[in-house]
Simulated assay, not measured.
Amino acid sequence: MRMRPTLSWTAAEGLPAGTTSVAPVADVLSAGGVLVVSGAGISTESGIPDYRSEGGSLSRHTPMTYQDFIGSARARRRYWARSHLGWRTFGRARPNAGHRAVAAFGRSGLLSGVITQNVDGLHQVAGSDGVVELHGSLHRVVCLSCGGSSARRELAVRLEAANPGFDPMAAGINPDGDADLTDEQVGSFRVVPCAVCGGILKPDVVFFGEAVPPRRVENCRELVREAASLLVLGSSLTVMSGLRFVRQAAQAGKPVLIVNRDVTRGDQHAVTRVALPLGSALADVADQLDIPVAAEAAPPV
Rank of each mutant, 00 (worst) to 15 (best):
W87V: 04
F90A: 02
T116W: 03
V232S: 02
A283H: 06
G14C: 07
S108M: 08
G279L: 02
L122R: 00
M64F: 14
L138Q: 10
G14H: 07
R94Y: 01
L85R: 14
E226R: 15
P63G: 09
A31N: 07
T182G: 14
G147D: 07
D68H: 13
S128E: 04
E54N: 10
E154A: 13
L111T: 00
V192C: 11
D180K: 06
V263W: 07
P255S: 08
A249V: 05
L243H: 06
G172D: 15
L276Q: 08
P213A: 07
S128W: 00
L7H: 08
L231T: 03
M64Q: 14
L233C: 07
G136H: 11
T272W: 02
A75M: 06
C146Y: 10
G109Q: 09
A11H: 13
A103S: 09
P175L: 04
P168N: 13
A171D: 15
A270H: 05
R88K: 15
S72V: 03
R92V: 05
A93E: 03
Q248K: 10
I200E: 06
G147S: 13
S83R: 10
V293Y: 00
P49H: 00
G266S: 13
G32R: 01
M169Q: 14
K254V: 02
E133R: 02
V119G: 03
V239D: 03
Q251M: 09
A101W: 00
L223Y: 11
T20R: 14
A170S: 12
V192A: 13
S8T: 11
Q268V: 12
A81Q: 07
A195Y: 03
E54Y: 10
A11I: 07
A126G: 08
M240W: 15
S21F: 06
Q67I: 05
G209F: 10
E45S: 14
V232H: 00
H84Y: 15
F90C: 06
L138A: 13
S53F: 08
A73R: 12
P255T: 05
S112T: 12
L15V: 05
V271E: 15
Q67H: 07
A286N: 06
R225A: 14
D183C: 11
F245D: 02
V271A: 14
L276V: 01
S280Q: 12
M64A: 14
T20Q: 14
P214V: 09
L159H: 13
L282K: 01
S241W: 03
R74A: 15
V263F: 09
G33M: 01
D204R: 12
A101Y: 01
H139Q: 09
G199Y: 11
H61E: 08
L257T: 00
S108H: 12
A75H: 04
D180R: 05
R216H: 06
S236W: 01
I48C: 04
S72D: 12
P255R: 01
A275T: 03
L29E: 00
L159D: 02
H84Q: 13
A104Q: 07
V36S: 00
H61Y: 15
